[in-house]
Design a protein around this nucleic acid. Structure first.
Lengths: 342, 342
DNA sequence: GATTGGCACTCCGCAGTGACGAGTGCCAAC
DNA sequence: GTTGGCACTCGTCACTGCGGAGTGCCAATC
């Protein structure tokens, strides 16, 4: 059936182009892939594919190049995620198993992912929202200066400095610590926040308004609000940008800029696809037109049914999607497992 | 005196070349700088300068370009650090004053530095060696799992997970905490480490060997040893690499790779020049030959007489040294002041 | 002795040219 | 629906010639 062959041609074009980085012509196509037809037939198919918008020619009488739509079709219907080699699997687990804490897990993941895919890797730190408050510590650095340390069930530690308006005695500090601890330990982020809001200077005991509770609560709320922590991101493999070869200014420059703007990166990564689902966003499908020639392959990670955060890679639209998707999915799985164990 | 004029010519060449990015010829030189002599005279001077190795021609009958040696002379003898504009000063202080903790200070510094110099900025986190132990906290996450949090006077917080071989009662935990705290609080890193080494299972009371003290001490020692913390580094402004224009492969690729290898970066930054001293390492003077076309401008920062750590920028040898040196020095000063206040 | 103007020379950069080849579209034949 | 043939398009590459920026050198001048 001709429809099938046309899709086979599309697939062959994508694979060849990703590999050679050059527009692919009808003759080369029949030679390198075992489609049992003549170049002329392929040409006819290509004409149709071009009409339908899956491929395009950089200029008349050059070979064909996939369009975003073509890649999309390829990803959606023409490829299956190819399993990683066992060597790769071994590399992943040995690489990640050595991690000592959450920070380390994230750092290693980013490195691993960038090496596996040879692209720029991005890993979002696990979001706080699902985690609970493990502990709060108040440390007096000076009479009027307090270090507030917040420890979460994910292992994340947030620290803030608080300047007080007045001196704080050891007893008052102990009391305050007790007060806060009782309010938040074991609670989820959301619960802890409402508990904290209900706290300050309880009116039923105005004789002993816990001094300094105001600023401390303030700072804890700030630390709990996902403002900053949700936005934490690790980036790695920027050296892979050097392989972009041509199209430097148009592609690499905006990407380099994006890599420093973590907010932009977060938006790029997009919503975490839950479960084993890998999201692929191709070229202009993304939110930034300066990044029209880059694709994002991402997925969520975390415990089986929910996803704590997102990880993925950013690369040129012309990339090895099956391999990349496999790597992203595999790393997400391993990271999830490790987080689950810890 | 002719010697003076020759140096003026060298200075003019450097300034012009940095500005135009093109080899500079004798005619353009006398026009743009007010040296009151003819092009022919300048040519004679240039011939001498070339003989002495300060400048070179990319090819016969092209203009001249400074050599590393030429830049070195320029930096050492031909330029004075130009003071920042008051607008820049204001920008610096307002930018850094908003910092909430040490991490934030470092992040902001890196950003600020890269924006001021339009180069890649590198800031080393303050080293631990000079700081003292403010607090240690042991948090039981589970019967056999302990979170060890180490808080230093610089505001740095290190956290480690410890797996225990046996269950730990609340009392034992309290005792262990007390033991450790008494040994390390207020001590410098070095003192704390020796104190810890003297601790485990005190033989004078074998009836109650503090359980789990071994692993905890282990982990504290590990956290205290500067292995990891000394190597922490923040990098920013990689987008400025996009401005390198030509010489992409030769210059940007190795630099991109270096930026991910923090150990390499640390070696690049080199020893912290104490006080107000800014170190400039030009091209091949550095330790890596792949980076022969990049220069490093760095300085130490920290309390007045010692330097906690190093910060600086990495850029092409063809850079605005006076401006860059001024920016690096200014940022180091402000950061030092802020750290001193905190 | 240092400086200057003049001059021949070198060599890069650029635009124009033409041959080549890869690739296409179309058409007639199968 | 497929195939071979053929004319056509257009980018790439090597080559060429030219203009210009810049140099080195030399003789003249201050």
């Amino acid at each position: 059936m001709q429809e099938d062959r046309r899709l086979a041609v599309l697939r062959a074009i994508v694979e060849d182009y990703v590999h050679t980085e050059e527009p692919v012509g009808s003759k080369a196509l029949v030679e390198r892939h075992g489609l049992g037809v003549s170049p002329a037939t392929v040409r006819n198919d290509m004409a149709v594919l071009e009409d339908e918008g899956y491929i395009t020619q950089p200029h008349t009488s050059a070979g064909r190049v996939p369009t975003d739509k073509g890649y999309r079709m390829f990803v959606d219907r023409l490829t299956t995620v190819k399993p990683l080699s066992s060597a790769e699997k071994r590399a992943i687990s040995s690489f990640l198993d050595g991690a000592v804490d959450l920070d380390d897990v994230v750092q290693r993941s980013v490195r691993l992912l960038s090496q596996l895919t040879r692209q720029v890797a991005v890993v979002q730190y696990p979001t706080l929202s699902r985690s609970t408050v493990r502990h709060v510590e108040l440390v007096a650095l000076a009479p009027r200066r307090l270090l507030v340390v917040l420890i979460l069930s994910t292992g994340r530690v947030e620290q803030r400095l608080v300047e007080l308006g007045e001196d704080l005695s050891d007893e008052a500090l102990a009391e305050l610590r007790h007060l806060v601890l009782r309010a938040v330990t074991g609670q989820t982020i959301a619960e802890a926040m409402t508990a904290l809001r209900a706290l300050p200077t309880p009116p039923d005991d105005p004789a002993r308004p816990a001094p300094a509770s105001g600023p401390v609560v303030e700072v804890l709320l700030d630390a709990l609000s996902d403002d900053r922590s949700d936005h934490r991101i690790a980036v790695g493999g920027a050296a892979n940008l050097a392989r972009y070869g041509d199209s430097f200014d148009s592609a690499v420059r905006p990407l380099l800029e994006a890599l420093e703007e973590h907010v932009v990166l977060l938006k790029l990564l997009g919503e975490a696809g839950t479960g084993g689902l890998v999201t692929v966003r191709i070229g202009a499908e993304g939110p930034y037109e300066e990044l029209a020639s880059t694709s994002v392959v991402s997925t969520g990670y975390g415990p089986p049914d929910e996803s704590l955060a997102t990880l993925g890679i950013v690369g040129p639209t012309r990339m090895d999607y099956p391999g990349t998707m496999a790597a992203v999915r595999a790393v997400a799985r391993y990271v999830s497992r490790i987080l689950d164990e810890a």
